[in-house]
């Protein structure tokens, strides 16, 4: 199997992991907040809007993953261009570039989900503190943003 493997396969594996892992993280995070939110809404339906806002927060990691995946596809010509013939070395480089967003995206989305779910509990008590609940959750996202940044810079730094 490995004999037939070329750089492009590695690059696509990177793209798949970026989209997949970050997406899994977001799904877990959003799901967790969703459970908290439905706990609150079952007693207090008027809080739907506010809790939905919090639920959306851990979703961004999945988008960062998709973004990275799409950039890889674009740069390697899988979409909208000619498929590049990558060397193994280039393939590994692209794969590595995808790792920050894949790994950090997975774990930070889960962590952010926990923070946001706790924020839902805060909203249940004190709806006027929505701003603070959001900030607590967004503090976590910083690291996903930094990972995304690293992935993007790495990708743009690779010459094909």
């Amino acid at each position: 199997m490995f004999e037939s493997m070329t750089g492009i396969v590695l690059a696509l594996l990177g793209a798949a992991l970026a989209v997949g892992l970050a997406g899994i993280g977001s799904a877990i995070g959003v799901g967790l907040v969703g459970q908290s939110a439905s706990g609150v809404v079952s007693e207090d339906p008027d809080k739907f809007g506010q809790t939905l806002l919090l639920q959306a927060l851990p979703g961004t990691q999945g988008i960062y993953g998709l973004l990275t995946g799409f950039l890889i596809m674009q740069r390697t010509g899988v979409v909208g261009g000619n498929l590049l013939n990558l060397t193994m070395e280039q393939g590994w480089a692209v794969f590595m570039a995808a790792m920050p967003v894949a790994i950090v995206g997975l774990l930070s989305a889960i962590a952010q989900g926990r923070a946001a779910a706790a924020g839902v509990g805060l909203i249940a008590k004190r709806p006027e503190e929505l701003g603070k609940a959001i900030i607590f959750a967004v503090m976590v996202e910083t690291y996903a943003v930094l990972a995304l940044l690293a992935s993007i810079l790495l990708l743009f730094g690779i010459t094909f």
Binding site: I63, Y64, L67, V145, L148, L149, I152
Partner: peptide, 11 residues
């Protein structure tokens, strides 16, 4: 931390 401006804008 302001690098998020770039990252989110690109996103």
């Amino acid at each position: 931390s302001y690098s998020r401006l770039l990252a989110l804008g690109l996103a």
